[in-house]
Structure formats: structure tokens, C-alpha cells
């Protein structure tokens, strides 16, 4: 099933039309758990970009020699390899962020965005196309998580990327950096994106 869409389109679909978080509601576990600040959401996104692009490339290369019966275990092993690399890199270079993300970096292994792209795309398409698809998806994921993290950080702490935005007299809405804030903000973001799509369709 070689896709006929052009390369730019393959990339752009991940940003909006098939945005993994807002449109497909995939990978919600890290989306809800680590976006209490912009930097955490952004770092999580970077880890996913690395893992998704690398594993998509490898799986796409090996797509013709992976037996159909054991494809999922094979995908998991490849993904786990890159997740481990990403996890150790984060721990070595940015220990603070690594601590903040906690178990959610190792958990990228079972992130449905990544496994889903292998199953649905990389295992059926040539390398170039797979990498472009992986880049689009993971960058769409990163942008969404960064926006989500920024909104929560802005209202919950008064800063974005630790830069003070709100006046100092602003009393932070603690709830926004707690779990309910994640659900509320994500729900509203999905609602707004649906609303924009509905308007565009008119």
C-alpha cells in the first residue's frame, strides 16, 4: 500500500489533519502527565521525535524481512532500543528534566503513536516516506505538548519556559499544574481544534 500523497503533504498531515494528540487522541498518557510546564512538554516531544524517526527508519528498512507473525515484538525491540538511548541521553545531559519526566520516557516504548506509525506506515512504505511521516507526526506531537505545557505553566505558575509573563501580582491557579488542569486544557484544545475544523469545512 504505497501511499500516493506528496512528501510535503505526508509531513503536514501530522501537524494538523492527523495530529496524533488532537485528532487521533493517541499518546495521551505522556500528554496528560508531563505537560505541567512548557519545557517538560517540549523535552518529551524531542524524545518522541528521536525515537519515532529512528525506529521508523529502521523498521521501514527491514520491512521486507520481518516475518508478519512476529512483527509487533520486532517493532517493540527496535523502539525499546531507541527509547533507552533517549532516556540515558536525557539522564546524562539534562538530569533535571529527566527527573521531571520520570517514568514517562521509558514508557515511550508502549506509546501508541510510535507503535501505531510502525504498524500503519513504516512497515508498508519506503524509508524516505516513513521518515517524513515520522517527522510530521512527532513534530505535531511536540508542538501540541509544548502549547499544552505553555498554557498550563502560564496559568499555573505565571511563566512560559520559566520566563515570567504574568504580572507578579498574579496569583497562580494551582489547579492548572495539577492533573485536572491537564484534562481541562487538553479537552479545550481538542474542542477548539474541532471548532476550527468545522468552520473550515463550511
Amino acid at each position: 500500500m504505497a501511499s500516493k500523497t506528496s512528501h510535503p503533504k505526508e509531513f503536514l498531515k501530522g501537524l494538523w489533519d492527523e495530529n496524533p494528540v488532537l485528532r487521533m487522541l493517541l499518546g495521551l498518557c505522556p500528554t496528560l502527565a508531563v505537560t505541567n510546564s512548557a519545557i517538560n512538554g517540549f523535552s518529551m516531544g524531542l524524545a518522541v521525535i528521536f525515537t519515532l524517526v529512528m525506529s521508523s527508519a529502521i523498521i521501514s528498512l527491514a520491512r521486507n524481512i520481518i516475518p508478519k507473525e512476529v512483527r509487533i515484538p520486532t517493532f517493540i525491540i527496535v523502539i525499546a532500543t531507541f527509547v533507552t538511548i533517549a532516556d540515558k541521553m536525557l539522564a546524562a545531559h539534562v538530569p533535571d528534566i529527566s527527573k521531571a519526566l520520570g517514568p514517562f520516557v521509558p514508557l515511550i516504548v508502549v506509546n501508541c503513536i510510535i507503535l501505531g506509525r510502525q504498524e500503519a506506515f513504516a512497515s508498508k512504505n519506503p524509508v524516505g516516506r516513513s521518515v517524513i511521516d515520522a517527522l510530521g507526526m512527532s513534530i505535531g506531537f511536540t508542538i501540541t505538548l509544548t502549547i499544552l505545557g505553555s498554557i498550563r505553566e502560564l496559568l499555573g505558575v505565571g511563566t512560559i519556559f520559566a520566563v515570567q509573563i504574568m504580572p507578579l501580582s498574579f496569583e497562580p491557579w494551582m489547579v492548572m499544574v495539577l492533573q485536572p488542569g491537564a484534562f481541562l486544557t487538553l479537552g479545550l484544545m481538542i474542542g477548539i481544534s474541532n471548532w476550527l475544523n468545522a468552520r473550515r469545512a463550511k
Binding site: 496569583e171 497562580p172 491557579w173 494551582m174 489547579v175 492548572m176 495539577l178 485536572p180
Partner: peptide, 9 residues
């Protein structure tokens, strides 16, 4: 919502 946001006030 207010209790979760401004628990001291």
C-alpha cells in the same frame, strides 16, 4: 475549581 486553585484563600 477555586478550591483546587486558591486553596489558601
Amino acid at each position: 475549581f477555586l478550591q483546587a486553585s486558591f486553596s489558601v484563600k
